[in-house]
Design a protein around this nucleic acid. Structure first.
Length: 380
RNA sequence: UUCAACGACUGGUAUCU
């Protein structure tokens, strides 16, 4: 059980559906493991993270007596994959709902842009804890309601670091770096995420000097903080600085590598980008997508883009990867291939549709563009 | 360590407009 729970967890982290199915198949072969509710709950979570809520449901249905964990992971698996109604149905199936289930449902609404539903749920929750309040705060910030977020923050019975960090982050996104700073100065305690959020607030508002002076005063900096400034330099075109940071940071995770690949790709330095890609110890779906997008924008490296795509394995691709490949064909002027690729996308999103519409429109084929436009299932 | 182990909230990287 210990071994398989580790395996299931790692499949969830890497979002590797192929590996996930393998782990599942081993478990199914053994009666003891198959009937272990603890393991089943982990499998549901794993499949949810790997983008396969249907497989998660199969596991869920085989549990004789689902507990709160089972329902909550199932609900979250649906919500993480955009199936908010199924998530709600699962929530409604529960006999006794604890505060975690309520909060998970709240976050599900929020993540799927149902702010009103989130608020309604929050108002009628039988009990709330700090996490519930933070989830509601997050609902406001991630759905663009800064005013309500600030009001809610003031009403919070208990403000945690997470609440404060959330607000600083949102103030930065809303173009208020100085408010973010005064908020930062007022709160009783800060952690590395607080500092990074403030650095980011300055960066995203073009105040690199302020960002760096805050960065220099950070008591501790982790790989996230380092990557934040790395990207700031990269986006100003200061690749040498970015590279130095990348070399000198105390540890590099896959995000730091991806950021460096993207730094080169952004400036059209494909060879350098490729070098970084090859030196990256462990790729993830973003690493590959960055490279595909890099080759795509070049317009002459279609075969390289396709090679990366083909090397990925079906289940480690996501819709962003597919969209990047579609765009590679568009940039190369091969709309037929773009269309064929588009039709292979398991779950095309708004970006996929926009890419096709824009491609035809820019090639003066307004008729086909409109055909695509008419077929979009969900517009924004 | 085994009436333990699994579920909810915040900061960094990718695709179209």
């Amino acid at each position: 059980v210990a071994v398989f729970s580790k395996l299931a967890r790692s499949c969830g982290l890497t979002r590797d559906l192929t590996e996930a199915r393998r782990v599942h198949s081993y478990i199914v072969d053994n009666v003891c493991l198959r009937t272990n509710r603890f393991l089943s709950n982990l499998l549901i979570e794993m499949y949810g993270k790997c983008g396969s809520p249907d497989a998660a449901r199969t596991v869920f249905n085989d549990i004789q007596h689902p507990n709160c964990y089972s329902y909550t992971v199932m609900l979250s698996a649906y919500a993480q994959n955009g199936h908010i109604h199924e998530a709600r149905a699962t929530f409604d199936m529960m006999h006794q709902r604890d505060v975690i289930a309520w909060t998970a449902m709240l976050s599900s609404y929020s993540a799927n842009r149902y702010l009103d539903q989130a608020k309604k749920l929050f108002d009628c929750m039988p009990q709330r804890n700090t996490v519930s309040w933070n989830a509601m705060l997050q609902a406001y910030t991630e759905n663009g309601d800064l005013q309500s977020a600030l009001e809610l923050f003031d009403q919070m019975p208990e403000k945690s670091l997470i609440s404060c960090n959330n607000v600083i982050c949102k103030l930065g996104h809303s173009g208020h770096p100085h408010q973010a700073r005064s908020f930062f100065d007022q709160i009783p305690e800060r952690d590395v995420a607080t500092w990074t959020a403030l650095v980011m607030a300055y960066i995203e508002n073009g105040l690199l000097d302020d960002a760096l002076s805050v960065f220099d005063r950070m008591p501790h900096c982790d790989v996230v903080g380092w990557t934040t400034v790395l990207v700031a330099f990269a986006e100003r075109g200061e690749l040498n600085e970015a590279r130095l940071i990348h070399q000198q940071m105390p540890a590099r995770d896959v995000v730091a590598w991806n950021a460096m690949i993207q730094a080169y790709a952004q400036r059209g330095q494909l060879e350098e980008a490729r070098l970084m890609f090859d030196r990256t110890p462990k790729h993830d779906v973003v690493s590959a997508t960055v490279m595909i997008a890099a080759y795509a924008q070049d317009g002459r490296s279609l075969s390289d883009a396709k090679a990366i795509f083909d090397s990925m394995g079906r289940s480690s691709r996501n819709v962003v990867t597919w969209n990047a490949l579609v765009q590679a064909y568009v940039e190369a002027g091969d709309l037929n291939a773009a269309k064929a690729t588009f039709e292979c996308i398991p779950r095309p999103d708004v970006v996929s549709w926009n890419a096709m519409i824009a491609a035809y429109a820019q090639n003066d084929d307004l008729e086909t563009a409109e055909e695509f436009y008419m077929k979009i299932p969900e517009r924004n």
